[in-house]
Every structure is written in structure tokens, then in C-alpha cells.
């Protein structure tokens, strides 16, 4: 669906959100299945795994929480690490706020504001009419949340069997995430200044991940990219565009 189509398409807005978030599923489900498997192997029941995925709903921090609890770490430390990893989410809602029309639903919907849903919403909400935005976000966030819960349950109940049957699927499907993020980032390459800053950010995040610092790497790389953006002098163009 093109940018023009999404702004003018008929039909319920929530359905548009569901449709737009479909690519997330091929990234979410394999990771959620892995989490379900890891959680049950760490001694958590299916119900407990379900509760962690449904309530915390933040991929990387869930793995850390389960791993720390299983290794006998103090519970306060497991909670502190969970929150530290998720701290990067603080900048997501303020970035979306200018496109959120007044609605009592937004506070509840913030539970679904993951990295991926933020990236999707940041690109899509400005293209939608105001009246469509709550419905769109509801459809996108709910599908992502339910797929994460369903994947975790599947992993808890049949993860071992699934991984043995289709080992390649677990390797291939998560590629949907970098592919999706690429499609969301590419339209931002609007000037040499933005291009350089974004490339610095992507390269820094990649380097942090290779160095085993994926979670801390996200805010650090974003800060480096931002620093690069503000350090670079924008060339003065006749039209005033930067």
C-alpha cells in the first residue's frame, strides 16, 4: 500500500493498523517462541510465561528478567535491570504526542508502545486523518501484543518441538524486522545532514550490538546520531531547506 493509499483508504482505521503491523508478526513470533522456550526451561510455568509476556511486554528485558530470576539473582536487581533496559522507551511517546488527537484511550494504549510499534506509528500516524489515528494505533498495537503473547504461549507449550521441526524458519523470519526498519528509516534520508547522522547512528548501533551492548546501544547510538546532526552545519540552500 502506498503512502497516498494509506491516507485515503476506506474501511475501518483499526483494519489499516492491523494490515500495517502484519510484517511485525514474522519478527515477533519467532522471538516470542524463543522466549516461551527459555522461560519454561528456566522453570516458569506456561501461565507465568504468559503473564510475563502480557504484562511486561518488552522482549529483551523479559529474557533478562527470566534469566536473572533463574540464576537466583535478587529480585529487586532483576526488576531494576528490566526497567533499565526499557528506559529507552521514554522518548517514544513524546515523539508521537503531536499526532495523537485527544482521546481517553491513549494512556491505555501506551502499554503497546514497543520499539517496533513506535517505529511504525512514527511513520504512519502523520499520514492519517486525525479521526483514524486511535483506531489505527489500536489495531496495530493490539495485533502486535496478541502475537507476542500467542508466540510466547506457543514457545512454552511446543517450543522445543517447533525449533526441531523448522530450525530454518526461526532463522529466516526475524529478518522481517531489519527489513521493516529499513523501509521506515529510508524516507528520512532527505538531506546530506540527515543521511550522515542516520548512518552514524546505524553504524554505532551495529558496533554496540557486536560488542554485546545491544540494549544500551540503542539510546547511545541514537544520542550519537543526534549529536552528529546538531554538530553538522546545515548547508544554506536557496529554498531554506535543511
Amino acid at each position: 500500500m502506498s503512502d497516498h493509499d494509506i491516507a485515503t483508504s476506506a474501511g475501518p482505521a483499526w483494519l489499516g493498523g492491523v494490515r500495517d503491523s502484519l510484517p511485525l508478526l514474522s519478527g515477533y513470533i519467532p522471538v516470542a517462541v524463543s522466549f516461551g522456550l527459555v522461560a519454561t526451561q528456566a522453570g516458569f510455568s506456561s501461565l507465568e510465561t504468559l503473564a510475563i509476556s502480557g504484562l511486561i511486554y518488552a522482549g529483551a528485558s523479559q529474557f533478562v528478567f527470566v534469566g536473572m530470576v533463574a540464576s537466583g539473582a535478587p529480585l529487586w536487581l532483576a526488576v531494576a535491570m528490566t526497567l533499565l533496559i526499557n528506559l529507552r522507551h521514554v522518548v517514544y511517546a513524546p515523539n508521537l504526542a503531536p499526532w495523537l488527537p485527544p482521546s481517553r484511550w491513549w494512556p491505555w494504549l501506551m502499554h503497546g508502545l514497543t520499539d517496533q510499534v513506535f517505529a511504525l506509528a512514527h511513520a504512519r500516524l502523520p499520514q492519517l486523518a486525525e479521526r483514524q489515528r486511535v483506531g489505527w494505533f489500536c489495531g496495530a498495537a493490539l495485533l502486535a501484543w496478541l502475537s507476542w503473547i500467542a508466540g510466547s504461549l506457543l514457545g512454552a507449550l511446543a517450543g522445543e518441538w517447533l525449533m526441531a521441526q523448522w530450525p530454518l524458519l526461526g532463522e529466516v523470519m526475524p529478518f522481517a524486522l531489519p527489513a521493516l526498519f529499513l523501509v521506515l528509516v529510508v524516507p528520512r534520508f532527505t538531506s546530506p545532514r540527515w543521511t550522515l547522522a542516520l548512518c552514524v547512528c546505524i553504524a554505532a548501533a551495529l558496533a554496540f550490538t557486536l560488542g554485546g551492548l545491544a540494549n544500551v546501544g540503542i539510546p547511545l547510538a541514537a544520542a550519537l546520531g543526534g549529536l552528529c546532526f546538531f554538530t553538522l552545519r546545515a548547508p544554506r540552500l536557496p529554498g531554506g531547506q535543511r
Binding site: 517505529a119 531489519p178 546501544g217 547510538a221 541514537a222
Partner: peptide, 16 residues
């Protein structure tokens, strides 16, 4: 500026 940078950072992390 930080919004697009966060998306770019998540892309960088997911590339490995």
C-alpha cells in the same frame, strides 16, 4: 531528531 534516530538505532541493532 531523536525519534528518527531511535528507529535508525533499532535498525542497526537488528542488522546483526
Amino acid at each position: 531528531v531523536l525519534g528518527p534516530m531511535m528507529i535508525a538505532a533499532v535498525l542497526g541493532v537488528s542488522l546483526v
